[in-house]
Design a protein around this nucleic acid. Structure first.
Lengths: 114, 114
DNA sequence: CGGCATCCCCCGTGATACTG
DNA sequence: CAGTATCACGGGGGATGCCG
């Protein structure tokens, strides 16, 4: 399976996966769910102050559809809904972790902030 | 250095890095530069048929500014310009690789195509 | 608390044509 | 070949208000 994949053919499959992560907030949300944490809607809102409810729920829903995020509803009042990663979502952790390390590397590199 | 980073503080730094990868084509381009390959402008164009010149040069420029991509100009006619990853860009390879593996995992998972 | 509906605006993106 | 310039558009994303 890990034969000499041409970048072209590999990229083809990758682009599909990439679309799942597309969007301004997907990765940010995932990072907060990183490590199998379960977070309530409001917790995510507070964790990502810059995001709006609409965007949060929208991206959450899309990722749920894409099978990356799972939604756990607790039928009670007041309502309580938690979000976490699916197994496949967990499989993203190595990538997220690598990304985390990469970001940390930024110190002292050619950072060039906007 | 790898003390107990709170996700909040880590995410703060990560979000900066994430913005660098934002955009419809950044990752796709990076995947084609993956492995230290040097590609000419026209080669990238052909490798990513769906992209327009404008988008290609735009994303390339931004990534160059962000220190992820390097631009090698060969002063000659006809003009020849090659693009590759910087050291910091190379540092993204583990992430890209992990992403690649994750994408491959998609077979037989809960794929749910749009 | 968690979520949906609506309106609206901006900017990311695309198409086309031109230049060094 | 490797860009730049310009115009146009669509929808992603923001603000606000209401509902179960």
């Amino acid at each position: 399976m890990d034969k000499k994949w041409t970048p072209t053919s590999a990229a083809d499959g990758v682009e599909q996966a990439l679309k799942i992560l597309e969007g301004k907030w997907k990765l940010v949300i995932l990072f907060h769910l990183f490590g199998g944490k379960l977070l309530r809607f409001s917790e995510l809102e507070r964790a990502i102050p810059a995001i709006t409810q609409k965007m949060l729920i929208q991206q959450l829903r899309q990722m749920e559809i894409d099978g990356v995020v799972r939604r756990i509803v607790h039928h009670q009042v007041p309502p309580k809904v938690e979000y976490g990663l699916t197994d496949w979502g967990q499989a993203l952790c190595p990538s997220l972790d690598a990304l985390l390390k990469w970001a940390a590397l930024r110190e002292g590199q050619g950072e060039n902030d906007a």
